[in-house]
Amino acid sequence: MKQIAVKVDDLTVAYNYKPVLWDIDLEIPEGVLMAIVGPNGAGKSTLIKSILGILKPIAGSVSIYDKPYEKQRQLVAYVPQKGSVDWDFPTTALDVVMMGTYGSLGWIKRPKQKEKKAALEALEKVGMLAFKGRQISQLSGGQQQRIFLARALVQNASIYFMDEPFQGVDATTEIAIINILKELRKAGKTVIVVHHDLQTVPEYFDWVTFLNVKKIATGPVKDIFNDDNLTKTYGINYKVSIQE
């Protein structure tokens, strides 16, 4: 049995006393590339944000390799939704990627040459080195997403959480991103992705969690990605043909 990278116990999260996640139990084994799928308002982003301590749950707990998240920050990288930030912010692509190093620096300490070098390497990995000095509003949607990915890569984490990394990117970027995610899995990392496009689940991921306020199912894609679970999650008769 593989080690459990992320464990969620009895997690309940509410906005204004209305639960958006209800009693979630979830174990994510190390080294999987997992999609979290579910309809709008199912609490997919909320689940990630609660695991990362950005939202405070009203009940339940989360552990990363058997310890609370606060003690394991260094092991975790986070890619928020692209739309959650102001891309007119006065800064460059390189500077945004450098932000990924801030966590290991801690309060007050400034990034130095070592951090800059790491950021440049991450930019190269996502094919964005040529754009390092570009103001971020001058980048296309796909390029902005690559910058976000590079910012997570620079953290050199063990677990990556990504909130809809394929939102509004072109096909080339989508392929580039998924290839990087597959490489991460090959290197033994755990990657958890909020995902919308059900068609690509079997092709991209090896693990899947169905979520709709409650957890519907979680497990290997080949075992549980079926019409039954899709119908339970989306409420209507859902048919997705799985390519063998």
Partner: peptide, 14 residues
């Protein structure tokens, strides 16, 4: 800078 640009990331990094 980080909390102004991306409060979510800032929170996740501590």
């Amino acid at each position: 800078k980080i909390s102004t640009f991306d409060a979510g990331l800032a929170a996740s990094l501590g």
